[in-house]
């Protein structure tokens, strides 16, 4: 039944697309407060996955591995902010671009030396036996990806909209100096956003590892796609990255099924080029309202 195969491809592609969306969301978090992003975000995903795998190997229960993995990711995010971003921002330079790339390369080499170059499976207690939903096979593992992504993004969005701290985030993004005059420390806000972004990267690593594997290069393709998703959706729309991420994931999966796996990367790149040519602020990017 060809139709159900297409449906199958669409659904499992879209689920991987949610991982792109989650990593893209990590870009958005730091961009919102500081107009900077961590170009080594993929290495944060990978190193956090390795760290979590080590905890699993040590025999820790999954319920403990996940929060510790997230905490580790958050600490890495804070380290990236301190080492690669803060000074550059204070001097209003673009040095963070190079510095975050360098930190990423450093983490990559460190991971190769500590954990080796081989891809390793990530054991998980979540079963991978498929069940059928409307004629499409879905595994609990894939469901866990969707639940994890939506839960964390939903929680962060709720906090951003409903708390004073969230409004302070937005204020600093809008005008750093004016935010300072309210008593909101811009430095602390940027730190917090990098911490959150690191935790989000770690979550992406933990969620995707059981589906793919854990290895030094596991995130390089993911992060490229995530970057396309962030640019296509716009760097300020959390809702947009989910839609674009799922769309891209599904498109890739269909392309590689129909045209051969060599074509897998093509739709994402085409989408990126198209978006930059037609709508550089992103499909869901906001036009800035300004009145003087």
């Amino acid at each position: 039944m060809p139709l159900s195969i297409y449906a199958q491809m669409t659904v499992s592609g879209a689920l991987i697309g949610l991982i792109y969306a989650l990593i893209a969301y990590g870009f958005q978090l730091t961009y919102a407060t500081s107009k900077s992003i961590n170009f080594g975000q993929g290495e944060l995903v990978m190193v956090s996955a390795f760290f979590s795998l080590t905890l699993v190997d040590l025999g820790l229960p999954y319920a403990l591995v996940v929060p510790l993995g997230l905490l580790f990711g958050a600490l890495l995010g804070l380290a990236v902010e301190r080492a690669g971003v803060r000074l550059a921002l204070e001097q209003k330079s673009e040095g963070w671009i190079l510095l975050t790339i360098i930190i990423g390369l450093f983490l990559f080499s460190a991971a190769e030396n500590i954990w080796g170059r081989d891809d390793r499976p990530f054991p998980t207690p979540i079963p991978s036996d498929a069940f059928q939903v409307l004629g499409v096979d879905v595994t609990p593992l894939e469901v866990s990806v969707a639940v994890g992504v939506f839960a964390v993004m939903g929680l962060i969005e709720l906090l951003k909209r409903g708390t004073l701290l969230g409004k302070a985030f937005e204020a600093v993004a809008n005008d750093r100096d004016a935010g300072e005059l309210m008593g909101i420390s811009a430095t602390r806000t940027v730190m917090l956003s990098y911490g959150l972004s690191g935790a989000v990267a770690a979550l992406a690593g933990i969620l995707v590892s059981p589906i793919t594997t854990v290895g030094p290069t596991m995130a390089s393709a993911l992060v490229l796609k995530a970057f396309s998703v962030a640019v296509v959706a716009g760097l300020d729309s959390g809702f947009g990255v989910v839609l674009v991420g799922m769309f891209l994931g599904a498109l890739e999966s269909l392309a590689s099924f129909q045209l051969g796996s060599g074509w897998r990367e093509v739709p994402g790149l085409l989408l990126l080029i198209l978006a930059l040519a037609v709508r550089p602020t992103g499909l869901f990017g906001k036009a800035v309202i300004r009145k003087v």
């Binding site: 906090l159 708390t163 004073l164 302070a168 809008n174 935010g179 800035v288 309202i289 300004r290 009145k291």
Partner: peptide, 21 residues
């Protein structure tokens, strides 16, 4: 803060003595 509502602007003015969450 242009994109924020008038009331949110005022609330942020009181940031120094308001609970964060």
């Amino acid at each position: 803060f242009g994109p924020l509502s008038t009331e949110d602007n005022l609330l942020l003015g009181a940031y120094r003595h308001l609970p964060r969450f």
